[in-house]
Design a protein around this nucleic acid. Structure first.
Lengths: 346, 346
DNA sequence: CTGAAAGCGCTTACAG
DNA sequence: CTGAAAGCGCTTACAG
């Protein structure tokens, strides 16, 4: 039977195996394995023959087989909300770097903020037997991961907490950051401050709202229902809410926006209005310092979130077996101008 | 021997296998396989027993084993420059979506613009036996991939061409886009235009420079050496080059910046200067429309680049075996203000 | 409708 | 220093 000549698309089975290399080099299978893995106990001459066979045949070890036998895949999974969201890009890279330092590859995917898709993806990664999993949860119930964690899949949640299970978690101080941002507006004389955030089923949205309320409470300021709006971050909705909060008899004089997408839309809407409205946004934006006014933000450190989560993960893989840890990273107020505007008359 | 009681960190080997399920359900291995894979030919009662055993044991099929036997991993690899770069984020997501539509997972990693790291990563992915590979190349010699491609790893290059091998490629029209951008500046009266781009070993940098030269040539404008600067996109270097081109007896009146990082720094530097300097940048920026002046750009469509590349990849995996294709996607000039400024006096 | 045997390509545990 | 045998957990190809 000829080699691969009339196979329309050679794949996989057509590749040379260690056995082929062994045959060609006239040695045993195990000797090839030793050379490929750099194990000792092979004479220079034997090694030379094996290497010659390897390059002549174009052999590359099949890690699928290796993984099956060894029991570790040297890969970690990352489930995030959207691979295209610039906020998660540095987190993604940070997890990759830590994985790389530990010789592991990264398999990742987007939940698209859909709990069912999160679940499918996470379980698909478990079926691939990733050694560990970093999850930015979309759902609120992660009991489906319990059997996997019990079976040894190290799991760390980032950015949002796990639902209904106990697991290592790395979060920003969402409530504290929002509180600081709103207090900053209060300190600049604002008494009517609007909050526009993401959907209430998203933990970060309600935490940041909690911070907003705490700051208003601490300043003994009332909060009207119309000043709070949680919902999709689609530009149309956010635009409508900004305009609504700025109209009527007692319009807000400042806005606190609950994440980067909301902030971007709010900045856009405000730039079209004659009135100057103060703004502090949660999450930093590229070029925020170049807008006029430059945008004051509560910044998270997404790379540090990812790095910290991945470190916790590999500590587990390296045998750390104590109780679940929860790490809260501080946020940082970056005053640039928009948050320091005084209240408009009215 | 007890189950897993004194195993410090249960992993992998400790998980139940199909054999365990078969034993518990009192059926053969193949019957479990049929149920797990939804194959026909199992009575309702048998299936019920198998399912009971599966959930009692917490069984999840080990795809590592499946992959080894089936020959396809249902995974694709993506090698890009930097997972943290916002330009690549939509491309990353687009590849993921296409992969998902085809039931495949995405393994990705950053080359960090290092050819050796690109090679290591790409070959590690081949060792994992990804079905296909999407590569944004850092290096200029991809002959190392030839044995892999011959062995059936479908490979598509995006954003930059493959070096020294023939392969499917998807590119933006870098030269054409740059030419259009520079012609736009010429049309607004500029005769002394500077070009600041990425390192000359990066294909996109030299292609965009070629477009710059073509536009200047077409307008019969001379190009002075001092008006061209290729090098690292580090802010300090770019800042220095901007200031240098704006000083001296015949300063440039407009800048064409070769990518998003260069543009961001140039905008920052120009905002600090009293003089108004026209600017067109290659690649769009978030919030570019909100700056003053708003930034005129030559925009690529990174999501479409990723989508197109992934589609080519899966066409190959689905049997398309004709000659190598090269797809060039158009760029789009978005005039926002900075590119329409007239030349400053002087 | 059901299952025993062989095999995917490696590594492990031994034996020489 | 070297290699034959067994086994990782599935699927394939058969046979009943």
């Amino acid at each position: 039977m000829p080699d691969t000549a009339h196979s329309p698309r050679p794949r996989y089975g057509t590749r040379p195996t260690m056995k082929d290399v062994a045959t060609r080099a006239g040695v045993g299978l195990k000797t090839v394995s030793r050379v490929v893995n750099g194990e000792p106990g092979v004479t220079a001459e034997t090694e030379r023959r094996v290497r010659e066979a390897i390059s002549a045949l174009g052999f590359r070890r099949n890690d699928s087989a290796r993984v099956l036998r060894k029991g570790r895949t040297s890969s970690v999974g990352l489930v995030l909300e959207d691979l295209a969201d610039p906020f998660y890009a540095p987190l993604n890279r940070a997890v990759e770097e830590v994985a790389r330092d530990h010789g592991a590859l990264l398999i990742n995917g987007s939940s698209a903020e859909d709990p069912e898709r999160e679940r499918e993806l996470a379980l698909a990664l478990c079926a691939r037997r990733v050694d560990g999993l970093v999850v930015i949860p979309a759902g609120a119930d992660h009991r489906y991961l319990e059997p996997e964690m019990a079976a040894g899949v190290a799991t760390v949640f980032v950015d949002r907490p796990a639902g209904l299970i106990s697991a290592d978690t790395v979060l920003s101080d969402h409530a504290g950051g929002a509180r600081e941002g709103v207090a900053h507006l209060v300190a600049h004389g604002h008494r009517r401050i609007g909050f526009i955030g993401d959907q209430p089923r998203i933990h970060t949205a309600t935490e940041r709202l909690r911070g907003y309320r705490a700051a208003m409470d601490a300043a003994a300021l009332p909060v009207h229902d119309g000043w709070i709006s949680l919902g999709p971050t689609a530009p149309d909705r956010v635009r409508g809410e900004v305009l609504r909060m700025l109209s009527g008899p007692a319009p807000v004089t400042a806005l606190f926006t609950g994440n980067n997408r909301v902030t971007a839309t709010a900045v856009r809407v405000l730039s079209e209005l004659p009135r100057r409205v103060a703004l502090v946004g949660f999450d930093d934006l590229e070029l925020a310092d170049l807008l006029s006014p430059a945008v004051t933000v509560i910044a998270q450190d997404p790379a540090r979130l990812g790095h910290t989560a991945a470190e916790l993960l590999f500590q587990r893989l390296d045998g750390y077996a104590s109780e679940t840890r929860r790490i809260e990273l501080p946020t940082r107020l970056i005053a640039r101008g928009s948050g320091e505007l005084p209240p408009a008359e009215g």
